[in-house]
Nucleic acid binder design. Sequence first.
DNA 1: TAGATTGTTAATCGATTAACAATC
DNA 2: TAGATTGTTAATCGATTAACAATC
Lengths: 205, 205
Amino acid sequence: MNARKIPDIIIGRLPVYLRALQRMSDLGLKTTSSQELGEQVGISAAQIRKDVSQFGEFGKQGTGYSIEYLIEKLREILKVNRIWDVVVVGAGDMGHALANYQAFHNRGFRVVAIFDNDKSKVGAPIGKFSVEDAENLAERIRELGVKIVMLTVPASAAQSVADLAIQAGVKAILNYAPVSLNVPGNVKVQYIDPSAHLQRMTYYL
Amino acid sequence: MNARKIPDIIIGRLPVYLRALQRMSDLGLKTTSSQELGEQVGISAAQIRKDVSQFGEFGKQGTGYSIEYLIEKLREILKVNRIWDVVVVGAGDMGHALANYQAFHNRGFRVVAIFDNDKSKVGAPIGKFSVEDAENLAERIRELGVKIVMLTVPASAAQSVADLAIQAGVKAILNYAPVSLNVPGNVKVQYIDPSAHLQRMTYYL
DNA sequence: TAGATTGTTAATCGATTAACAATC
DNA sequence: TAGATTGTTAATCGATTAACAATC
């Protein structure tokens, strides 16, 4: 691997490559080419070669990439060759869905707790979890050593919950609340706002 | 509005601006500046001015932008100054959450039906809906004139459901299945893959 | 008027693509 | 060997930023 600063836009494509490679692996394939992978994910072969070559020489001229090996390398690069504990804040329908989400398995994540500030929800079972009191969020984040939270609270609460979580040591937030968050430079945020995603497509309709 | 081809990356920022403006409006604010809006959403003032000026002259020197007016214009541009009917395919936890999702209201969307191919789920109530048989998906899409679907089916089923929906006239897909879709050039896809979003952040941890 | 802020131009910066030597 | 495909360079293309005249 290489210590040069890698553009974030490249980092953003790696999970897409990884997802496609894991799919190929599930289908029993052993090798692929930048051409083939590019067709799968809708990205040019040149770009795929350029992207992965930022981190090393993982392919072989003439034959392409070993799927198994490239998966291993991408998992190392993305640091998902381990399991990250994640907490969910907000026990509404979306929090519920995330707490039970099966597709985190094998992709590097595990939900370990779900919180809500509604006392009437605290203690309620959600899948294998019991909803915890959001009052204890910071304490529990520290206790569990969690670095990643998923926010499914109302927009009005998102910033204050984010502040609290960051204070407790969180470094990455997957924000489902439809609001932009202000966070320190060393904290990452990704946004999932279904309405915004849809609005990005209606322009073309 | 202007007929020049607008880069997709600009289109992608407009929903973010709109979301922030609607928030300001809810707070009772009347005007804002590119500077202020930029701080809200974490984008430079110059870029915001450049982006919105692609579509017209919506601001006033010295005073900035009328929040109300800019909201109206952005809604026109994004074509969300109307309500789009949307169907959900896949009645698992995620489909359930989307069918009940309150935040579509006032942002241009309305869920009108939810489908599953599991006969044991067909007819089950989900919020105000009753799960419909995925066998009738194409027919119902045509009947309802739906142009947008949200896919929450397993990765293995996503491509074939997408093909079917496109065949029935769908032009935009919000894909929650963790797989890249191959679609014709006139069909838009947006991806929501929580694991991929998280993997994009673990790189930095 | 003085101060503020837009819309736009030109300059800079960064990302993508095309091409090809190297080599499996 | 001949064919295929990588990794990388240089060229192209596109996006962002800085600066400022226009003007509210």
